[in-house]
């Protein structure tokens, strides 16, 4: 098995931006998207977490 010394790697900016974009998409889908089935299922959570909704 090859091992790579990840401890001192200069990270590419792409994985970081990619992960942030995934997070933003998940948050938007759970909290902000207005599709009605999604809205109904997530309704109580949206009120409780304070997403601007309705």
């Amino acid at each position: 098995m090859t091992t790579i010394a990840l401890g001192h790697t200069r990270t590419n900016i792409m994985p970081i931006l990619g992960a942030a974009l995934i997070g933003l998409t998940l948050m938007f889908a759970a909290g902000n998207l207005q599709a009605s089935s999604l809205h109904d299922a997530a309704h109580d959570m949206r009120h409780a977490v304070g997403f601007p909704c309705h």
Partner: peptide, 26 residues
């Protein structure tokens, strides 16, 4: 459904938080 969606929202928060941590760790 509420619990699942809270977990989903927090997973979204987590991706943004860990991305920022990764940038700082770098």
């Amino acid at each position: 459904l509420s619990i699942l969606f809270v977990a989903l929202a927090y997973t979204g928060f987590a991706f943004m938080l860990v991305a920022a941590m990764a940038a700082a760790s770098d």
